[in-house]
Amino acid sequence: MNWNLPNILTVLRLIAAPGVAIMFLYFHRPWADWAALTLFVGAAVTDWFDGYLARLWKQESNFGRMLDPIADKAMVVIALVIITGYSGMNPWLILPTTVILFREVFVSGLREFLGARAGLLRVTKLAKLKTTAQMVAIAVLFLGTGLEYLEGLSLQGMTAESYVAAVEAGLAQPLRPCGSLGCATTATLIGLLLIWIAAILTAITGIDYFIKALPYLRDDK
């Protein structure tokens, strides 16, 4: 294995995947949310740079081809587990998350079964697009959980009516609106929309891979 810059970036992205979860062990919220968001976005950016630099400098390697999708999947899976937990098990998030996790496990199983013929399931442009969609959606959802926690601190257990009265009396800081909705609600709704789009793309790529592998799944007669 060559320790060139593209491979180093890929390894760092793989290390960053569990690092996102570790942020919630060493930081209090909302600092944990912001730290996880920063780490996730930074790692996601390397997903584009490592491939680009490997092609530009002609440093593509089998190690990079093997580790790159693993790092991507680890980032997505760990982040989705964290967000789902902190979102209060929102069913609108659980369903697309389930689709994404099922597809990743299913395709990994297909690749393992095909063995030397796993090259049939090469990463397509649509698969790269779904990975980008997943990462953008997760980043926005992390933003939503952080803002939601801040709004919770501002409310401090008050009802909406008592909070408004407290703001008018100068006893509480007003929440910053984003249009007609609060910023947390806006970010969460946008994140949910994006994760559903990502889930649809994820399902389509999974079906595509299954169709490609289907001739090799039939028993010889």
Rank of each mutant, 00 (worst) to 15 (best):
T132Y: 06
R122F: 02
L126M: 14
T132S: 14
I82Q: 13
K130M: 06
G152N: 09
G115L: 04
V136H: 06
N90W: 07
I83M: 07
K128S: 07
L120N: 02
T131A: 15
L95Y: 13
F102A: 15
T124I: 12
R122N: 09
G115C: 05
T84M: 05
W92H: 11
E112I: 00
S108E: 11
R122T: 05
K128A: 10
S108G: 14
I138T: 04
L147Y: 11
F102G: 06
S154E: 12
L126N: 10
R117V: 00
R122C: 02
F106Q: 07
E151G: 06
L153C: 10
E151Y: 08
Y86Q: 06
Q134E: 15
P91N: 02
L143R: 04
V99D: 01
E151P: 05
R103V: 08
T145C: 04
G85D: 15
L153Y: 02
I94D: 09
I100A: 06
A118I: 04
G144M: 10
V99S: 01
F113G: 00
L153Q: 15
L141K: 05
V81L: 14
V107M: 11
L120V: 01
I82Y: 12
A133M: 15
V123H: 09
G88K: 02
R103T: 10
E112C: 00
T132W: 10
V136Q: 04
T98Y: 12
V123M: 11
G119Y: 04
G152C: 04
V140F: 11
F142E: 08
E151A: 14
S108Y: 05
A137D: 02
L93H: 11
L141R: 05
V123D: 10
T84W: 08
L121C: 07
G109C: 08
A139H: 03
K125L: 14
L126P: 05
L129P: 04
V99R: 00
I82T: 12
F102W: 11
G88R: 01
E148W: 08
A118V: 04
A116S: 13
F106P: 00
R117T: 01
F113C: 00
T84D: 03
